[in-house]
């Protein structure tokens, strides 16, 4: 066993082979393999949900839900410590309350949904941190807020893989109604397509994926792999399906390169993955064929018709 080489001595020196760069870390370290599998599962399921959120102009909703699950996770933590099951059940309940509650509050008070969501998520974040602080020290708090990709244990891994499978299955069934509800909710309602029910199912999937992501990326970055690839995909696809494929591709690449970067350069893993995804967004906004900045600047001759 060679052990983990210090990045200061080795860094990204020229003699580093492709094997060393891309394969060795995962071949040598079990925790990295688990982190990779977990993140790849997330990358398959969460980005298509992000695409629908972007198209519905609900990009901030995922963030709100990610904060909204915190009090539930805190309650689970208070009952059972750092147990995946307890924290997930608590988080699921809290997330659903926020998702459904925000809609209900905005309808009942005649306000805008984004305002109700902002109020709820600030409340939830403060409540969550307060609850955790009654029992836990700063180590647990930072684990819950920032996650630990490298601490993904078996139950967490099963949960991430299970949620990803469920999400892909549900999306394959709900694709047509979701697109319709997204594009023309009036038509969906007139055709009695149960738009509200599909929207609710969709919100449940978002909460589940935020929970799965929370295991690895923590509350504050859970939506990184859901939203950043989806926002970037807008510049690559001209159909909902095309955008979803692009988003999944970007997320998979970001997970892999984020983990490798974190290993080779000794960076915190969650932020490294989200940073790579963010870099993908910047590149897409600059160079993407759909509404990218650079293609617009290229002064190609206009067409004749």
């Amino acid at each position: 066993m060679r052990g983990r080489p210090g990045h200061a001595q080795r860094g990204l020196m020229p003699e580093l082979s492709l094997y060393d760069l891309f394969w060795a870390p995962f071949a040598e370290f079990g925790f990295l393999r688990r982190a990779l599998v977990g993140c790849l599962a997330l990358s398959l399921a969460a980005p298509p949900l992000g695409v629908f959120l972007v198209l519905r102009r609900m990009s901030l909703t995922a963030d709100v839900l990610a904060h909204g699950i915190l009090p539930g996770i805190a309650a689970g933590f208070l009952v059972a410590g750092l147990s995946v099951t307890a924290m997930s059940v608590g988080g699921l309940l809290a997330g659903l309350v926020v998702a459904v509650g925000a809609g209900a509050i905005s309808r009942a008070t005649g306000g805008r949904e984004d305002a109700a969501l902002a109020a709820l998520y600030l409340l939830a974040l403060a409540l969550g941190v307060t609850l955790i602080s009654t029992r836990a020290g700063s180590v647990e708090l930072s684990h819950l807020l920032f996650g630990s990709v490298l601490g993904v244990d078996d139950p967490a891994l099963y949960m991430m893989a299970g949620i990803a499978s469920l999400t892909l299955l549900a999306l394959s069934f709900a694709w047509r109604p979701l697109v319709l509800e997204c594009f023309d909710p009036g038509f969906a309602a007139a055709a009695r397509a149960r738009g509200g029910l599909w929207h609710l199912l969709f919100l449940v999937l978002v909460v589940l994926n935020v929970l799965a992501a929370f295991q690895a990326l923590g509350t504050l970055m859970a939506v990184g792999l859901m939203m950043l690839p989806a926002v970037a995909a807008r510049h690559w696809g001209r159909s909902v399906g095309g955008m979803a494929y692009a988003a999944v591709g970007i997320a998979l690449a970001s997970s892999l390169s984020g983990l490798l970067l974190s290993y080779h350069l000794d960076l915190p893993t969650g932020p490294a993955i989200v940073l790579v995804a963010g870099g993908a967004w910047v590149v897409s906004a600059l160079a993407g064929p759909v509404d990218g900045i650079l293609p617009r600047l290229l002064r190609r001759p206009h067409l004749t018709g």
Binding site: F173, A174, R176, A191, S239, M243
Partner: peptide, 18 residues
Amino acid sequence: PISCLDVVMFGHWARAGA
């Protein structure tokens, strides 16, 4: 991001469903 044909095909919803 939806094509003309996809919009028109939603017209079949009442018969084809989800």
